[in-house]
């Protein structure tokens, strides 16, 4: 192989590597629970995160005129208030497993997208869950 070609290949591979792995690092969206967030707050600031847990009973406030939705997401240990703009999906209910994609904004989590598992073999989570079980719910959602 000629050195000229070798040089070209190295440049192309480097560019590709940067494109893929640089881009991947910046665009990884972590699935976390409220407890995990409080373990390492700095890590999840100002980046896209999927926050999963249950919708705390009695915490849902939805104004259909302004389409402002507020609720508290909990994993049984810690809680995080969430604000979101838009109609909640039909499966969105209290005590329901939910995953919100969005960013932390101070103490509050600003949701951009609400995900509720919409497959037919959806498993409704009940009370009496453990954090590990919740993790599983999050994984199942989307």
């Amino acid at each position: 192989m000629k050195p000229k070609h070798l040089f070209g290949i190295v440049v192309v591979v480097a560019a590709l590597g940067y494109l893929i792995f640089g881009g991947l690092g910046r665009n990884l969206v972590y699935f976390i629970t409220p407890s995990e967030y409080f373990q390492d707050q700095a890590r999840y600031q100002s980046r896209l995160v999927r926050l999963g847990g249950l919708v705390k009973a009695g915490s849902v406030q939805y104004n259909k005129e302004t389409l402002a939705l507020r609720f508290v997401i909990t994993d049984g240990v810690r809680e995080i208030p969430v604000s979101h703009s838009g109609t909640p999906p039909a499966l969105f209910k209290e005590n329901q497993g939910v995953v919100v994609e969005g960013r932390f904004n101070g103490e509050e989590f600003k949701g951009q997208e609400l995900l509720v598992k919409h497959s037919e073999d959806y498993k409704a989570p009940g009370a009496g869950y453990s954090p590990e079980q919740l993790k599983k719910i999050i994984q199942e959602t989307k």
Binding site: N27, L28, V29, F31, K135
Partner: peptide
């Protein structure tokens, strides 16, 4: 860690 790769990555590349 549980992660997903966002659509922005795919658009970027």
């Amino acid at each position: 860690a549980k992660v997903s790769v966002g659509a922005p990555f795919f658009f970027q590349v």
